[in-house]
Every structure is written in structure tokens, then in C-alpha cells.
Design a protein around this nucleic acid. Structure first.
Length: 323
DNA sequence: GGGGTAAATACTTGCCT
DNA sequence: AGGCAAGTATTTACCCC
């Protein structure tokens, strides 16, 4: 989990939106509490009542018990990390291409031909059924496009997951692999809060824009993809730390947002824009006076949007009494 | 810097075949 | 199912104070 966060931040593009430990999905059917996903233990639970909604995902925690910290560090290193970018999650054994034995010595002719036959069969078995072959091609395609667009690894992983789900739900028949692969990547970028215009994907993809759009729409409906936190409050801590604002201002920003949401002034507006505007407005109310440009850069929202939003925010805030 | 506006663009939705 | 068109929000570009 922490690793994912770091990767996101470190990796270029300046888009440092990180999925924090509590990735909100929606609200709990039992008590309306916040739903959080715990990657380390592969559980999706309600923060309030502890209801477990999904526990089937992969547990990435160490499979050892550890009795003190050092031991934990040692024992949790057990092999390469799994990746969703390979059709078999990088778990299968591969037969090396070099004709060397375990000691690095070249091997005899007879053994070499035998090894060659093994490789052939190994390949055949590994990519046997249609789904696997499908995945293999699509994931390769996702990697290729992600590289071309400088998209960080965690996003690629997400794209892989989305694609995998699409295949599992039989969404592919009648649709192009390429289209769905591109759509997955597009969706993943959005989920990570670093959306790229569809046209960028269209440039590196082998399918036209509308194909991607269609596939995306289809997938997001059928899979119920959760696109970014719909709650502006989720963005506040993130922007705040990027901009280094005071706790006072953060509190103020939250206040602005909650009052705006009570009135319903937020519907239809982009949550990121609202959060950015709230931060901007808050720093003015607390005499920190960040410029619109600074906030705009950090939040990846245009100055114009911040202008429009923050005026609205102040308006409802004034109306609701407290000034 | 803050603030405004018009035109362009991104994305969604609803309607039609 | 898929294609088209309209509608909304956001961005870009340019201007003024």
C-alpha cells in the first residue's frame, strides 16, 4: 500500500494524486458508513460497522508470522512481486532461453534439442486457452501505450485489473481487444485521479477514439467502475499537503465544502475543482493568500475553474450565516 | 496578481434507427 | 446495438484593472 503511494508520487508527470489508504468506494449498505479498501489484507470493509463486503482480492501481506520487526523485514521478502501486467501475474516458471545449466556451463547438443522441445510445449501450455491468450495480448498493449504516454506503473496495474475483470465478465465477445485495453487504461488513469484526455489515448492506440469511448462506457456501466472519489473532501488533505497550508486553513476548507454540499451547490461540478477552490478560499480567509496559479498547478485544475467555484463557495457560505 | 469573457474541447446523456 | 446530437462543465486564450 505505502509502496503504491510512493510510486505514484515519485513517478513523473507531476501528477501526484495518490490513492490514500482509504479509497472510498461508496457507502455501506448497513449503516451508511464509509467503505474502505485494505490492500494489504485484501478486504473491503465498512469503516463504521466493520461489515466485510469483499474479501476475495489478493492478500499481499507476508505469508509468514513475524515476532519482531527485523524478522518481518526479512521474511516478507519471498520472491518477485506479482504483477497484473503479465497474463499469469508473473508467477509461472519460465524456461530460460540460454542453453546453460545451473552452473552457467553450456550444455550438450542432445540436451539442447530436448530443451528446445520443452520450451515449445511450455509456451503452448502457458497460453493455452483463449482467455489467457487474450489477456497476454491486451496486457502487452496496455504496457506499450502506458510507456508511450508516460503513465506510472500503479496505473498500469489498475488497468490490468480492469481489463481482467472485463474478460472475466465476458464483456469481450464482439468487441476489439485493443479497444477494451485502451479503455481500461483510460479508466485506470481516471481512477488514480490523473485523467488524460481521450484523444491522447487515441493517438497511441490502434483503434479510433469512438471505439475506445464506447468500450469505456460499456465497461464502466457493466463493471460499475468507481470513478474517482465523488467527494470533494477526499481531495482536501492531498492538495493541502502539496501546498503546505495550515491546519486552520484545512479546517476552513472543509467547512466551506460541507456547507456547499448541504445546499447542494456541488452537484455536477468536478470534485477536484471544488476542493481546489475551497483551499484557495480558505487561505484567503486565514490570511495565507495563496495565488490562484499556485493552487491551480497543485490541483491540476484551471485558474478559471477555481475562480468560478470559489465565488460560489463564498456565496453559499455567507448565506448560511457564519461569515 | 485578480478578474472577466468567448470560443474550443471533453464528457455524458438521451433519443433514434 | 450502435450512431448521432444536444447539453453541461472545463479549459484555452486574450483582455482589462
Amino acid at each position: 500500500m505505502t509502496k503504491t503511494q510512493l510510486d505514484l508520487k515519485d513517478s513523473n508527470t507531476g501528477t501526484s494524486q495518490s490513492t490514500t489508504e482509504s479509497q472510498p468506494l461508496s457507502s455501506c449498505p448497513e449503516c451508511d458508513g464509509q467503505i474502505v479498501h485494505d490492500d494489504e489484507h485484501g478486504e473491503t470493509t465498512c469503516k463504521e460497522c466493520g461489515l466485510v463486503l469483499d474479501e476475495d482480492s489478493i492478500d499481499r501481506g507476508p505469508e509468514w508470522r513475524a515476532f519482531h520487526n527485523d524478522e518481518k523485514d526479512e521474511k516478507s521478502r519471498v520472491g518477485a512481486p506479482t504483477t497484473r501486467l503479465m497474463h499469469d501475474k508473473g508467477l509461472s516458471t519460465t524456461i530460460g532461453w540460454q542453453d546453460k545449466d545451473a552452473y552457467g556451463q553450456s550444455i550438450s547438443n542432445r540436451k539442447r534439442t530436448r530443451l528446445q522441445r520443452l520450451r515449445t510445449w511450455d509456451e503452448r501450455f502457458r497460453t493455452k486457452d483463449a482467455h489467457e491468450r487474450n489477456l497476454k495480448q491486451a496486457l502487452g498493449e496496455i504496457s506499450r501505450m502506458a510507456s508511450a504516454l508516460d503513465i506510472p506503473d500503479p496505473v498500469r496495474e489498475t488497468a490490468g485489473t480492469i481489463y481482467r475483470r472485463a474478460v472475466e465478465d465476458d464483456l469481450l465477445p464482439g468487441r476489439s481487444i485493443e479497444g477494451m485495453a485502451t479503455a481500461s487504461l483510460y479508466a485506470a488513469a481516471r481512477q488514480h485521479g490523473t485523467p488524460r484526455p481521450l484523444s491522447e489515448f487515441a493517438e497511441v492506440s490502434r483503434v479510433e477514439k469512438i471505439r475506445i469511448q464506447r468500450a469505456y462506457r460499456y465497461a464502466s456501466r457493466e463493471l460499475g467502475l468507481e470513478i474517482e472519489p465523488a467527494d470533494p473532501l477526499e481531495y482536501v488533505p492531498q492538495f493541502a499537503s502539496a501546498l503546505d497550508v495550515s491546519d486552520e486553513a484545512i479546517r476552513q476548507a472543509r467547512d466551506l465544502l460541507t456547507t456547499a454540499m448541504e445546499v447542494g451547490a456541488h452537484s455536477g461540478k468536478s470534485p477536484a475543482g471544488l476542493a481546489a477552490a475551497a483551499i484557495y478560499a480558505a487561505t484567503h480567509l486565514t490570511n495565507e493568500q495563496l495565488t490562484q496559479e499556485t493552487v491551480s498547478d497543485a490541483a491540476h485544475v484551471s485558474m478559471v475553474t477555481i475562480r468560478n467555484r470559489y465565488q460560489e463557495l463564498l456565496e453559499v457560505y455567507a448565506e448560511e450565516g457564519y461569515a
